[in-house]
Amino acid sequence: MLIGQEVLRIMDLEKSFGQRVVLKKLTLTVRQGEVLVVVGPSGCGKSTLLRCLNGLEPVNGGQIVFGGQYLTDPQTNWSQIRQRVGMVFQNYELCPHLTALENVLLGPVKVQKRKKTEAMAKAEHWLTRVDLWDRRDSYPRQLSGGQKQRVAIVRALAMDPEIMLFDEVTASLDPEMVREVLDVILNLAKEGLTMIVVTHEMAFARAVADRIIFMDDGRIVEDSAPEAFFRAPATERARRFLNVFHYDDIHAPNPAKAEPSKDANATKAEPSKDANAKAEPSKDAAKDAAEGLGPAKGGGAP
């Protein structure tokens, strides 16, 4: 993967909700084609960070520079910026009264004012890639969670964004649907789309990331290559965080270690167990394995 010039620079970013400081002088740079995976305990500010980047949350201090433009400037034309920064949420948030295709066309037609035929061609291209072109006339409630999330990803991609933000896009999915969504993201990464991915799927993080950002309590605690982060995290805090995803075998001979982790975060770790089994191969291996561009076995009918 060719990592190019700087796309996004975040400097001393500060964000509070009332008295509560959620992002504490956060500094980060993202380059063209880079896949940044942000991990960290619940409540550490991952979602808030993403939401600051496309102006869903106003910031309290610091600077965000995107494509040479200062987003912290109060004059920022957010509608224009948001066309270039795609975002996908945990709960899909498709419009329930619009079909899959209409959802995808919403941005290009209403925001970008593109010609219908041009927008349509683009929608067909992307929906075909995620194996959902034949489901284009379905309403969100007629689609499975994984299918909805793929439509949501396509909806953002249809605007030709320069960077994509994914906020725990598999957290609401049944385990068997996680893979089809992660495969789509993996393929986008392989093609060199710049993105910031927040996830609790550690195996996926390892496979897709060029860099892992570990956040804790509103700060970036570690910023390292995935192999280094997962093999030997530099900080005690990251080690403890990663431990949550590791289950001791209760049948192990050592009785002292027989208790499963009782950490409050333990529930969050649940899905990663299956993910571990599925996505163990390294990024390139996984990317090569994924033939074609859509999810491995398509979503089929629900």
Binding site: Q80, R82, G86, F89, E93, P96, L106, G107, V111, A156
Partner: peptide
């Protein structure tokens, strides 16, 4: 609130979000 957010994240203006996302629902 997420319906508002997702509409805005697409670049729709407040009025467009009301018109295309919130009011129909």
């Amino acid at each position: 609130r997420h319906q508002w957010d997702s509409g805005r994240a697409l670049g729709l203006s407040e009025t467009q979000v009301s018109f295309y996302v919130v009011i129909p629902q």
